[in-house]
């Protein structure tokens, strides 16, 4: 009875982990970048399944809400705003030699961190299996909102700074258009008229004919 449950759980973990690894590989290697963003969203939702296996339900929900809902939407929007990035015929891929070197380096990164973590002496102090289920949302909420509520305010400040920074970076391009001129009283700056459309020459439709 118990043995069957243990096997079932391990099979579940192996299935979810293999799906996560395959989706992560596809998100990096798929030639169409819209599909790559889509596979990244799927990978984030399957990582939420890993968090459910770890019995951390709130982390799973937040993973789905922020990664699957927010960050993959950001990536898809950025792809949408840059039509050049959607066209996979314009994308340059790395040469096989560079790819091999990258594979070796990343493999050594994984092996080194894995070796350090699994051979390290503190690994023996951990229990071989999971402690009994005693956590729930109530205790986590009490930890975060009642005892360490300053962290929440710091997160709010970081989000505020990200909004203000995004607006400031988008406005910075307009500020750089102030060109200095030699005026009557020294160097002045005069605002150039904003005409995105008018200053750009029309694209030449004909390509090099034979």
């Amino acid at each position: 009875m118990m043995q069957v449950e243990v096997w079932f759980e391990q099979i579940e973990f192996l299935a979810i982990a293999s799906i996560v690894i395959i989706l992560a590989y596809l998100a990096l290697e798929h030639r169409n970048i819209v599909y790559a963003a889509l596979f990244f969203g799927f990978m984030a939702s399957f990582v939420a399944g890993i968090f459910l296996l770890l019995e951390a339900p709130f982390i799973a929900g937040m993973q789905i809400a922020v990664y699957t809902g927010g960050i993959s939407a950001l990536i898809i929007f950025a792809v949408l705003l840059i039509p050049r990035a959607q066209d996979s015929s314009l994308e340059a891929f790395a040469s096989p030699r560079r790819r091999r070197i990258g594979l070796m380096l990343s493999g050594s990164v994984g092996l080194l961190s894995g070796g350090l973590a699994l051979v390290f002496p503190w690994y023996d102090t951990f229990a071989p299996d999971m402690p009994p289920l005693e956590l729930n949302l109530e205790l986590l909420s009490q930890w975060l909102w009642s005892e360490h509520v300053i962290y929440v305010q710091m997160a709010a400040l970081i989000l505020l700074v990200s909004i203000v920074g995004a607006i400031a970076i988008l406005k910075m391009d307009k500020a750089e258009r102030l060109i200095p001129i030699q005026g009557e009283f020294g160097i002045e700056s005069v605002e150039e008229p904003i005409d995105d459309v008018a200053t750009i020459e029309e694209p030449s439709e004909e390509v090099g004919d034979e």
């Binding site: 982990a17 970048i33 990035a85 990258g102 994984g110 973590a117 699994l118 299996d129």
Partner: peptide, 30 residues
Amino acid sequence: MIPLSWYLVLSFILIALGAYGMMVKRNLIR
């Protein structure tokens, strides 16, 4: 029960994949 080392191996594989993507790819979105 699932041993802790399985989760750690999964996370190291993901870290190595992400490092591969960051080192090899040339597109900023990737």
